[in-house]
Structure formats: structure tokens, C-alpha cells
């Protein structure tokens, strides 16, 4: 379900991009975000170890970080697919 919503949001973004109302996202931008999310997850895991009192709360945060990572990876593969997909055939007047 989450991926369906992401695809919907991506469509909206692409539509805004076509109208010049959004900023173009490059693959390396998503890779940068994924790297940030991975670092964050590592930091949360380390925090859970040193603060057992907060372990439950941190576990929920880690679950959310995992979800974000899945989404980011999904977005990366969607954009990779879009970048390599052939242009749709246009109507020719001849």
C-alpha cells in the first residue's frame, strides 16, 4: 500500500516537473538520501544499545527508518526504470 502511495506521489511530482513547478531529482540525490537514512539507522541501533530504557521507543523509530529506506530504494528503482525506459511512440502525421 505504501508503495502505491509513493507511486502516486511520484506521478504528481513528475506532473509538476513537466509544468516547471518542481525540481528535478537525480539518481545521485536519492543515493545521498539513502546514505543518510542508513547512517541514521546505524545511529539508532547504537543508541538502543546504550539506552535500554528507551529501547522500545527506539525500536519503533528503527522500524520507521527501515520503512523510509524501503521507500527510498523503491523510488530509486522507479527512477532508474524511468531513465532507461524507451520514450513512448508519438503519433506521426504521415
Amino acid at each position: 500500500m505504501a508503495f502505491a502511495r509513493l507511486a502516486e506521489k511520484l506521478d504528481q511530482h513528475l506532473d509538476r516537473l513537466r509544468r516547471g513547478k518542481a525540481h528535478k531529482i537525480k539518481l545521485e540525490d536519492i543515493e545521498k538520501t539513502i546514505s543518510k537514512l542508513e547512517k541514521r539507522k546505524t545511529a539508532l541501533l547504537a543508541e538502543a544499545e546504550v539506552t535500554p530504557k528507551k529501547a522500545e521507543r527506539i525500536a519503533h523509530k528503527i522500524a520507521a527508518a527501515d520503512e523510509m529506506l524501503d521507500r527510498a530504494r523503491g523510488l530509486l528503482s522507479e527512477l532508474r526504470r524511468a531513465a532507461t525506459a524507451p520514450e513512448p511512440a508519438s503519433d506521426r502525421g504521415d
Binding site: 511520484l10 511530482h13 531529482i25 540525490d29 545521498k32 538520501t33 521507500r71 527510498a72 523510488l75
Partner: peptide
Amino acid sequence: ALAEIERLL
């Protein structure tokens, strides 16, 4: 660009 990604995710 990173802000757009954050909004998407």
C-alpha cells in the same frame, strides 16, 4: 532536489 525527495518519502 533533496527537499523534493523528503516530500516524496
